[in-house]
């Protein structure tokens, strides 16, 4: 399959199940909501070492937030509910509770009503002065803090999600690869229910399973490292000088499907004339996860 001179590999991206939630941070203005959200989703590129994958999903208009203030929606994913709960709690405690004028809400209903603590345990920061309020069947905590009152919903919903959707862009030069990624990320950001957890949405250090060093269980994806063309069984054709990957986590397989289509299309729109040669994907031979995103089917 070739789109605008870019060849689409007959391969698939392999993704795995995760647990995810959406939280909404509001503040007096978008700037301060963004400060809090940026911190909340910081250092959350990969579950491998961060414990979770998180990013800002989008900004919210005051009409869209529970308390009618500007806000930011963040998605956060982890390998299990427990791990997710721990990440949400520590991040909420350190990055939202602390952030001036913020308030914290759940942005999603749990699957079968499943919930994890959002502000439930942050309330103890109130040292007995915290106040609980049930509004519309949901419990909120009002925690007195130095700038007034921190309002947080008690729980947030947990849903089964998909992590690790991805595609690779192979280009003739580093600037061209990056330009294609930027175009793809920009297009994908318009979509709901997904995030691209790496810095700027792009990762350049795609990995393979295993390493020559016993202590490591993942190492550089040498097949896609252009400088190793002569040293390894390379996936890179002679004209490919740079490969970058976009990783996508989403609330459902369909959300990732859509995102990949939009992203790949954006990259392909730049076309061969801008040095984009090929789109591929990372998989582990189907051993890693049950979700397979076949590039050619997605783009069909």
């Amino acid at each position: 399959m070739i789109i605008n001179g870019v060849s689409i590999d007959k391969t698939f991206a392999e993704a795995f199940p995760m647990k995810g939630t959406r939280i909404i941070i509001t503040a007096q203005n978008l700037e301060w909501a963004m400060h809090s959200a940026t911190a909340f989703t910081g250092f959350a590129t990969s579950v491998i070492a961060c414990g979770c994958e998180a990013s800002i999903e989008r900004t919210l208009d005051p009409s869209e937030t529970p308390d009618g203030r500007p806000g930011v929606a963040c998605l956060i994913f982890a390998m299990g509910g427990k791990g997710l709960a721990k990440q949400v709690e520590t991040r909420a405690g350190q990055c939202v509770l602390t952030s001036p004028t913020s308030a914290l809400f759940s942005g999603i209903e749990g699957e079968d009503g499943k919930e994890i603590a959002l502000g439930k345990n942050l309330r103890f920061f109130g040292d007995g002065y915290q106040i609980s309020k049930m509004i519309d069947g949901k419990r909120y905590w009002r925690i007195p803090v130095m700038d007034g009152e921190f309002l947080t919903q008690e729980n947030t919903g947990v849903v089964s999600s998909v992590g690790g959707g991805n595609f690779l862009i192979l280009a003739e030069s580093q600037p061209q690869a990056l330009a294609a990624c930027e175009a793809a990320v920009k297009a994908m950001k318009q979509l709901p229910n997904i995030i691209m957890p790496f810095p700027g949405g792009v990762v350049r250090s795609g990995s393979k399973v295993g390493s020559k060093y016993k202590a490591l269980n993942a190492s550089t994806n040498d097949a896609f490292c252009p400088t190793l063309k002569g040293q390894t069984k390379s996936e890179c054709s002679p004209e490919v000088e740079s490969v970058m990957e976009i990783v996508i986590d989403g609330l459902s397989k369909e959300d990732i499907d859509k995102a990949m289509r939009v992203g790949i299309q954006a990259a392909c729109d730049l076309g061969a004339e801008n040095g984009i040669r090929r789109i591929s994907a990372g998989n582990y031979g189907g051993k890693l996860g049950p979700f397979h995103f076949h590039l050619q089917e997605i783009m069909a």
């Binding site: 308390d67 308030a103 309020k133 509004i135 519309d136 909120y140 007034g148 009152e149 309002l151």
Partner: peptide, 13 residues
């Protein structure tokens, strides 16, 4: 005197 964040939620309900 204070501006309390939960009140807009309550009025919305």
């Amino acid at each position: 005197s204070h501006t309390l964040a939960f009140l807009p939620l309550m009025f919305a309900s």
